[in-house]
Simulated assay, not measured.
Amino acid sequence: MRIKEIIVVEGKDDTARIREAVDADTIETNGSAVDEPVLEQILHAQQKRGVIIFTDPDYPGERIRHIVSQYVPHCKHAFLPKHLARAKQDKGIGIEHASVEDIREALSSVYELTEDWKETITKDDLIAYGLIGGPMARKRREQLGIRLHIGKTNGKQLLRRLNMFQISSEQLDETMRQIIQEERNE
């Protein structure tokens, strides 16, 4: 599988793992202290080939995603759920620990943020599905993030991501029906 866009990752171990999974070029941020020369390199890459941000599913990874997407408009985003990025022996979390198959899956489900997005999903929708303000909210948000490939979020972030990634009300409804049905079957 060849990826046209350049993938932004945190470090050399991520690059090595991604290259095992797909044919792609990467730019490494070298951790969460993303400096301006790296941001300029990412901006140039975006103008030439496009960029996919694919950072670890943890706080530093989300921080890098935010910094890069603020500096470089129109990036695409790939997400890997935390449970698929855990190291087997230690407590490490990162893209470098994911399986080749999981990396391919994440990179085949890329989203592009749009600046002219309209809010089609509301806070009331999240409340109705028990995604905020209920005893199962956190678990349901995690399941929804995994299934829609939008990452782990809190309630406020979830509403923003659903709308920015243009998830339709129908997609949300169908996915939540599946999640709720599986909860009933447990």
Rank of each mutant, 00 (worst) to 15 (best):
M1T: 12
R2M: 09
I6T: 10
I7W: 05
E10C: 04
D14M: 11
T15K: 13
T15A: 14
A16C: 03
R17E: 11
R19D: 02
A24D: 12
T26M: 05
G31L: 08
A33Q: 14
P37A: 02
L39P: 05
E40S: 10
E40Q: 13
H44E: 10
Q46I: 02
G50Y: 02
F54G: 07
T55W: 04
Y59F: 13
R63A: 13
H66Q: 13
H66T: 12
I67Q: 10
P73H: 14
H74M: 11
K76A: 12
R86V: 09
R86M: 15
A87V: 01
K88L: 13
D90R: 14
K91W: 08
S99I: 15
S99A: 15
D102P: 06
R104D: 08
K118P: 04
E119N: 00
T122R: 06
K123R: 15
L126A: 05
I127F: 12
L131V: 01
L131M: 01
I132D: 02
M136W: 03
Q143V: 01
L144M: 04
H149M: 00
H149K: 08
G151N: 03
G151T: 03
N154V: 00
R160D: 08
F165P: 11
I167K: 12
I167R: 05
S169P: 01
L172C: 03
T175K: 00
M176C: 05
Q178N: 15
I179N: 01
Q181P: 02
Q181M: 09
N185F: 14
